[in-house]
Amino acid sequence: MPVEILKEKFTGTVQEVVLGATKEEGGTRAKTVKLGGSSTLPFLQYEGDIPNRPAIAFEIWDIEPDWNEAFNESYGDVWKDPVAWAKKVEELGADIIYLKLKGADPELDNPKSPDDCAKIVKAVLENTGAPLMVEGPGHPEADNDVLQAVGEAAAGENIALGLAEKDNYRSIAAAAMMGKHCVIGRSPVDINILKQLNIMITEMGIAPNKIINDPMSSGLGYGIEYSYSIMERARWGALIGDKMMAFPVICVAGAEAWRAKEANAPLEDAGPGWGEQKPRGIMWEAMTAAALIQAGGDLILMRHPEAVKLLNKHIDDLMKPNLY
């Protein structure tokens, strides 16, 4: 007797968001990337449409980062210059470039001005073809000024501006609206705030296909399951028709994974059974990412090129059709 396949009957879909704009679309990107769009749970092709695979963005900074030595090999020769770094990650296969303007942090001795930031973003855009996402330094006032300038400088390119949060979203959302960019709304591992922020951003007039959600990821071993469950709940909500939970999700796997002692500790300082730092760090990031895509991550923000390679191959396998 054949088994009757039991399919969930979903009425909602995850919003599809396009990042980047080609010449025809008013920008200068070589290609655009589509995020989201699923009408079912992660990787269950047999029960719905999964038009876009999880995309991978490479994280770069506008100043030299304080990352583990493990990164010297890949980026040591470029990370003093964001344009060189951006070109490098594009060579390494970045679908999307995610630029963190850490240099504009007002607590630094000589923080970059909004104008400086605008120039950097322009230069990155001029020298790369991938869609771009830009995150401010993480201080509300600086974020607002910087992202406004960046939004203007990148007009037409359909970049993403982040991070809009519950207590500081208006300026950033306005900058996105003016430049016709996307906005990344971040909520602190809280599904109610996730929804509330989406409502507030939408009420400002941002179109649904311009919103990306960062529910705040935690790394493997340090709270990942909190993010995982928020994401699963939001995805379920999206699929049963709640439009305010239905935006593509970005998971900050790289930065979060590399906070862990397990990713960084050299063998001498490592715990029992940990082994060499190099594969351990790469895997800490790759496995953080792999777990989060099972919960519906649409865009994963990564650091290490080796972790990206592993993740890409894994996604290839997950995206193979499994129709009954």
């Binding site: 940990w274 351990r280 895997m283």
Partner: peptide
């Protein structure tokens, strides 16, 4: 492989919390 198993066990522990 240590890195493979350490991460896998950590994930399992997190998921089943």
């Amino acid at each position: 492989e240590l890195a493979s198993l350490l991460t896998l066990f950590s994930w399992r522990s997190n998921l089943f919390t």
